[in-house]
Design a protein around this nucleic acid. Structure first.
Length: 933
RNA sequence: GCACCUUUAGCUCAGUGGUAGAGCGUUCCGUUCACAUCGGAAAGGCCGUAGGUUCGAUCCCUACAAGGUGCACCA
């Protein structure tokens, strides 16, 4: 396993560009990143202790930045160190779908390039675009991870949105739901009116803003606000119970006040939430659009009325202002209040914080919405717990679990000051809203019975049925009522059918059942080509027979027959009634369901037929069914059949919740969803090789290494999820590195133009230099200021190491004849080297990689090169054979040890040198023994 | 408002209860030597300010100041 012999290798200065690619291939071909291979090839003992890190999965939102590079460098150092120490070492890589972040990037591109929104494309098509983008990002990221020399085990690569992780997410959700920790409720949530989704508390960024502060007369009181446009529904006057100024007002007292749109019956509420020292000490509340107000309203059982809709438009309660956007309404409302003489005064420059969505920057508008939450305060019985202080079978809460995991010492956070930050966060933690109204992510694994709406939390789908309307026809185009008459698909219609086929291609369709009318048959055949499924025709799925109405335009038809006037309408004499149609289609559907219920089936039918079929299966009223569920040609609708029918009405047709889960839900189980949970969690055996035993071998992981900026987002949630699901901790140590900033300490950002790209640095100075520049001087938890100059400095060091090796090896030093007698001086040098090795090991064990790197750097350059080698030149030229032999051997030993010590920090150059050592003790330095036991 | 962090050479940062160290930068000298991607040398610091503990403080304690971060509040 030697490098393709480069001609006169040591004559040239070290070229990272030339050798890094070769070294990389050498490592990858060896397979040593996979611990099973290490055991198999005898590099690691079968009973060696294991050491594992799961790579924090980078978001598939583009490319890796310096922060990722720092993370990779630190983890690779730990991993290579432990691998060399003989541990069974696993570093498991993966990527994160990053739901909202990725979707938001794609939406932005879509708007910019095609002026379209996601709704213009539809869910399926949009998701295809996102997946395409995610795939490209993923490939870029893999290339970057490799270029850094990160010795991850690619055979175990995972993705937060792949099949195995999806099963893990569904399983986790069900377990939490069954324990009563996941609930669905109407609660106030952070609503992003632009992205049309909820956002969790942690994803909000507060930005200071200066606005005028208005004081208004409200009955006998003065109230203040920045946002008069939200105040239409304010009918509760809140004041502190101890406020002497208002002691004549009693709790619950009512009074009529003049307000924006006339008189309002207002009610006095006494509550401690009112701050006596703020303004007049009196406030009115808007419970539907403010967290605090909502809490007050709940406490006192007050009415809660929505004022603003999901798009920021004022609702009818706003009277004249209804239908306007809040941003436009503010000056108008102000104007009206002023004209009514209710504006008391305006204070300019009031500083307050505005909540923004940190992904996309839109102002958050609190709304009350039906969402899914994780209850962090509810007591539950934990079946099994290894967390000290929490006994198996005892009652606990998720909050307590999170706190105990750290304060018991089961998890150590470095630097330890972050433990206090962590507790502080737990103390302020509220229920976690886990549902998002975006499309990219794990669908919420909850199904609602189509018939009675009963929810079912069940991971087992028996089959999926899809209803597809035929593609566009001539008659559709000319707005002609077809009924059983037929016209062929237009070009457009065929394209639509093809697109439907694309969507259904990966759904394992086994059968297509189509109406026997030509337009459906044609559509079905196109879909059959894409899916490979067989087509069966059934006249039962024909369109409604329109009798004398067939061939009329919609308008003429409407005039003569008004076809939906009532359920049993038979105006056209021989026309089929809607009741008859519903009956016919439903029977056809029931018949096929009975025979093919276990298969994934596509039904190709007509607009009318699908509508009345859905009326039946969704148990809709005639009135509800008048709103057509299918609007476009070749639109795909899906129904899920579950293994277990509805316990309430025994129907087996369900519809999945259309929301997706917060990306951190799947990230929260990352340490074990990647290690075979739940599929192999039971059967995994400790000490046995292979991924199916990973769960027993590598969980809990040893270290979670990440930036301190995602302590709450991620670290805390992993502790929560692991604590609940496994009764253990996800990792024993948390190592938080600092953020990489520019030379002036500013955050790197596109707009500042101060981004240093890792790949560029690797290209110019080599991966070794890039790695060192991110590690030396980077003490835990403190930010690193990076400049290109720094990187260049470490390139010089790589070159120095190369030249040291060149000198030593060319001076005739060699490792054979280990019994060589050392001179007194040389014994001391060997001892000194071993001392350094010990120091470095200790620093790494203490997560002080900065000190370890600094120590080895210093030793190699200023001790070994500047002093030991310089001092050797004379000795090697002397005629004292014993001294020469001793020194040659000593130089070899110091070089050998230095290379091993340096390897975790700068793997490429050290491996390149290693390959030039004639009598090296292991083929690859990557799996050579660490010089300290 | 509460908490945390930082403050040491021009810059970036280590560090220790016994009056300070590295890298980069600066200045000077040096190349037939493994390396000019180099070697040697030098200049440069009342270790944020004020108190306290101590025989002794850059280090421990208190207060303050400046910069930063997190959390909460924001009618």
């Amino acid at each position: 396993m030697k490098l393709p012999k480069a001609p006169e290798p040591f004559l040239k200065p070290y070229s990272s560009k030339e050798s890094e690619q070769q070294i990389l291939e050498l490592w990858e071909k060896s397979g040593f990143a996979n611990p099973d291979v290490c055991v198999e090839k005898g590099v690691t003992a079968p009973d060696a202790p294991s050491y594992s890190i799961v790579l924090p999965p980078p978001n598939v939102t583009g490319t890796l930045h310096m922060g990722h590079a720092a993370m990779l460098a630190v983890q690779d150092i730990l991993i290579r160190y432990h691998r060399m120490r003989g541990d069974k070492t696993l570093w498991l890589p993966g990527t994160d779908h990053a739901a909202i972040a990725t979707q938001s990037v794609v939406e932005k591109d879509l708007l910019k390039a095609e002026k379209k929104t996601r709704h213009d494309l539809g869910r399926e098509e949009f998701l295809k675009r996102v997946e395409q983008f995610a795939k490209e990002s993923h490939d870029t990221i893999v290339g970057q991870v490799r270029a850094m020399g990160a010795s991850v085990d690619w055979t175990r690569e995972a993705y937060t949105l792949d099949e195995a992780r999806n099963l893990a997410v569904r399983t986790a959700f069900k377990k939490m739901y069954d324990a009563g920790l996941i609930y669905r409720g109407n609660r106030i949530v952070n609503w992003d009116p632009k992205m049309q989704t909820t956002v969790s508390d942690d994803e909000i960024e507060y930005v200071e803003q200066k606005d005028p502060f208005y004081y208004f007369k409200y009955g006998p009181f003065i109230i203040g606000t920045v946002r008069p446009e939200t105040k239409f529904g304010d009918k509760y006057i809140v004041m502190h119970p101890d406020d002497a100024r208002y002691k004549e007002y009693k709790d619950g007292q009512q009074m009529e006040v003049e307000w924006i749109n006339g008189k309002i019956m207002a009610t006095i509420v006494k509550d401690e939430a009112a701050d006596m020292s703020f303004g007049s000490g009196v406030m009115t509340i808007t419970p539907a659009h403010s967290g605090i107000d909502f809490e007050i309203a709940q406490k006192h059982k007050l009415d809660v009325e929505q004022i603003i809709n999901e798009r920021g438009i004022l609702l009818p309660i706003a009277g004249d202002f209804a239908g306007q956007h809040i941003k436009k309404a503010r000056p108008l409302v102000l104007e009206k209040l002023k004209n009514k003489g209710l504006l008391v005064k305006v204070e300019e420059g009031y500083v307050h914080n505005v909540a923004l969505n940190s992904r996309g920057g839109e102002t958050i508008e609190p709304q009350i919405k039906l969402q899914w939450f994780v209850d962090v305060n509810k007591k539950f019985t934990i079946p099994r717990s290894e967390i000290p202080g929490i006994a198996s079978g005892s009652q606990t809460t998720l909050k307590e679990l999170m706190r105990r995991a750290v304060d018991s010492g089961a998890i150590k956070i470095a630097p330890d000051r972050f433990e206090r930050v962590y507790y502080n966060w737990i103390d302020n933690l509220r229920d976690w809203c886990i549902s998002r109204q975006i499309w990219y992510g794990h669908r919420i694994p909850v199904w609602y019975c189509l018939n009675c709406k009963q929810p079912a939390i069940d991971a087992e789908i028996k089959s999926r049925w899809f209803l597809v309307r035929h593609g566009e026809t001539e008659a559709n185009l000319n707005r002609i009522t077809q009924g059983h008459q037929d016209t062929p698909l237009t070009e457009q219609g065929m394209a639509q059918a093809k697109s439907a086929g694309e969507q259904l291609k990966n759904q394992d369709i086994e059968l297509i059942i189509s109406s026997d009318l030509g337009r459906c048959k044609q559509t079905a055949e196109i879909i059959a080509r894409a899916t490979g499924a067989e087509v069966v025709l059934d006249a039962g799925f024909r369109e409604r027979f329109m009798g004398d109405g067939e061939g009329l335009t919609y308008e003429e038809h409407e005039k003569r027959f008004s076809p939906f006037k009532d359920y049993d309408d038979k105006t056209a004499g021989n026309m089929e009634t809607t009741r008859e149609l519903e009956e016919r289609v439903s029977q056809a559907f029931a018949k096929h369901k009975k025979i093919h219920g276990h298969k994934n089936v596509v039904i190709v039918s007509h607009g009318g037929s699908i509508r009345w079929l859905l009326k039946r299966v969704k148990n809709l009223t005639f009135e509800q069914a008048k709103i057509p569920p299918v609007k476009g040609n070749a639109e795909v609708q899906s129904l899920d059949m579950l293994q277990t029918p509805c316990p309430k009405c025994s129907n087996d047709l369900f519809e999945q919740d259309s929301d997706t889960l917060d990306t951190w839900f799947s990230s929260g189980i990352w340490t074990f969803s990647t290690l075979g949970w739940p599929s192999f969690a039971q059967s995994a055996m400790k000490g046995r090789p292979g991924p199916e035993n990973d769960f027993a071998n590598y969980h809990p992981t040893d270290v979670l290494e990440t930036g301190y900026d995602i302590l709450f987002f991620w670290v805390a949630r992993m502790i929560l999820m692991t604590g609940f699901l496994l009764g253990t901790v996800p990792f024993r140590n948390v190592y938080l590195h600092g953020l990489v900033r520019d030379a002036r300490g500013r955050k790197m950002s596109k707009s500042l133009g101060n981004i240093i790209d890792p790949l560029t640095m690797i290209e110019k100075y080599g991966a070794d230099a890039a790695r060192l520049s991110l590690v030396v001087g980077a003490s835990p938890g403190n930010d690193v200021k990076l400049s290109e100059n720094r990187v260049r400095g470490y390139k010089h060091f790589a070159n120095k190491v190369w030249n040291i090796s060149r000198f030593v090896l060319e001076s005739g030093a060699e490792g054979r004849g280990t019994n060589a007698e050392y001179t007194q001086k040389d014994s001391e040098l060997i001892a000194e080297t071993q001392n350094i090795a010990k120091t470095i090991s200790e620093h790494i064990d203490n997560f002080r990689l900065d000190l370890a790197a600094d120590a080895i750097y210093h030793f190699v350059w200023h001790r070994f090169a500047d002093e030991i080698i310089e001092g050797s030149k004379l000795i090697l030229k002397s005629r004292d054979a014993v001294a020469v032999a001793s020194r040659r051997h000593t130089l070899y030993m110091i070089l050998d040890t230095s290379l091993r010590l340096l390897h975790p920090f700068m793997p490429f150059v050290t491996e390149a040198i290693w390959q030039q050592i004639p009598d090296r003790k292991s083929d690859l330095l990557m799996v050579a023994k660490w010089p300290v036991i």
